[in-house]
Design a binder for these strands. Sequence first.
DNA 1: CCACCTGTGAAAATCCGGTGAACGCAGGGT
DNA 2: ACCCTGCGTTCACCGGATTTTCACAGGTGG
Lengths: 287, 287
Amino acid sequence: MPASPKQVTSSPETGTAHLNPQQTTRLAVIDDDSGFVTVLSKRTDAAGWQQRVLSSAIPPDELVAMKLNALLLDMEVLGDEAWEYLGRVCEALPDLAVVVCTGRSTVAQRVRALRLGVDDWIGKPCHPEEVMARIEAVSRRRRRRTRGAAAEAGPVVVGELEIRADQFQAFVGDGSLDLTRREFELLQLLADTKGQVLEREAIYQRVWGYAMAHGDRSVDVFIRKLRQKLEKRSPGWRYIHTHFGVGYRFDPEAVGGVAPELADEAVAGIDPQAENSQVVHRSFTAA
Amino acid sequence: MPASPKQVTSSPETGTAHLNPQQTTRLAVIDDDSGFVTVLSKRTDAAGWQQRVLSSAIPPDELVAMKLNALLLDMEVLGDEAWEYLGRVCEALPDLAVVVCTGRSTVAQRVRALRLGVDDWIGKPCHPEEVMARIEAVSRRRRRRTRGAAAEAGPVVVGELEIRADQFQAFVGDGSLDLTRREFELLQLLADTKGQVLEREAIYQRVWGYAMAHGDRSVDVFIRKLRQKLEKRSPGWRYIHTHFGVGYRFDPEAVGGVAPELADEAVAGIDPQAENSQVVHRSFTAA
DNA sequence: CCACCTGTGAAAATCCGGTGAACGCAGGGT
DNA sequence: ACCCTGCGTTCACCGGATTTTCACAGGTGG
């Protein structure tokens, strides 16, 4: 019970590329050219990649469930809906590395695909080694980006909080907030963008790794959990502010349990009932 | 007491129909193939990219100083030190998009370059459009991550107003106007089209995201709310002008005892432009 | 002076975000 | 193999914030 560090462990990498630095590549291949697939598989296995081969397109939702890092596909197996499918996939999983490897193509087709969100286009025939190198190159940026921030130097301190990326945990003094992975990732994102108002979609996108479905309230729920844990360890500080109709903003501010001059008001206002919650940020405009 | 928890506001889907002045691409090209460079430049200029052409390698330090987004280079002009140079550049500027565009090459060379940190490798001859599309594709990921869609450029200042897209809010000095989301979007649209007279239908279409029903007065109501909040924080300035029978026009002008001549000037400069000659609003101020 | 428009207030209808709780899944332990 | 527990997702409900809708008053133009 006492602050047992629990954290990480669990949960396989949530798909979010955001916080999975070190992780083997999880690749899905949509192609029916058995020769090509076989040869490629041999290499990827040797490289320790996890791979799944599909002989036809599958809905973006299922791709999400696979928690992939990269997707390699041949336009030919997609048939007529190829473009529309590419568009949907790239939109739903903006963080997924999408590489097309297909036969003959025109400049116009390649440009169209690239503009649609595809990360690279390779013509067949091609060497598996180059395919892998290109997939790595595409994945690299994301990894460097996210990892850079994470493995970063010292712990980040905001307000009374100490966020330790190396522990996937946050502390107040020596007490752990006991955040789950998702909670931690959310907190880290917020802290990284301190002061900015983030829309729910943007938060979801960056923490969960894929597009938020209309009406999903996960972000709200996690914000609540975070607030609870923050309040528990660091009462007297307000960290997460709600911007009605927009999203949330992280900005630590000591809230006054202390406002002597307004004693009466304050005393009256002291309602022990935690219930109040109703944060209501109202930042600027002191008025 | 419930006096006024107020905050920003909301608005569902709608969205964002605004144009986003995406940050321009800053590209450096290291190549001595004048024909290629010329053709490419024509395209990049047309696309609004900022570009610098170099006929030989320059030290990474100088590349840093140029604040580039992308670097396009031909292995041939680098000579013997090509590999070593690529390595240094990729290491020194991890966030720079590095694309090689060169003549014949072997799989081994391409793989080597990609593993070294190069983001893409294109063989010459190639179509400039594809080169651009690939550079965009490489830059895309980083851009998405670093700046959410909203954060774009700095705050916009008009009159006494400061419109901060990253906060979904407008300020006068340090005081927030306390705009709701819809109000903010309306203000943003107006400010973006400063000086133009917008018809109600057009405003509705762009802020609400769908066609305005006949007889809907929402736009009028929101204009009133905006005017109230603007007046409250910035008296002495007139921002929204009514064009009878047409719509509204945003144009900040100091009003009041202070600089009459300025006001005249401004009014005079306005271009009626409405097809109906009749218009000619003349904002009833002066008196 | 007569149609039209636009400015206003306020009531009515919606939308939003905070909550508490139920579900389903997966890992660990027995 | 089975049960227990932690975690992430989904729902339904509720009070409060925001948007729409209305009816009327004041202005504008011809």
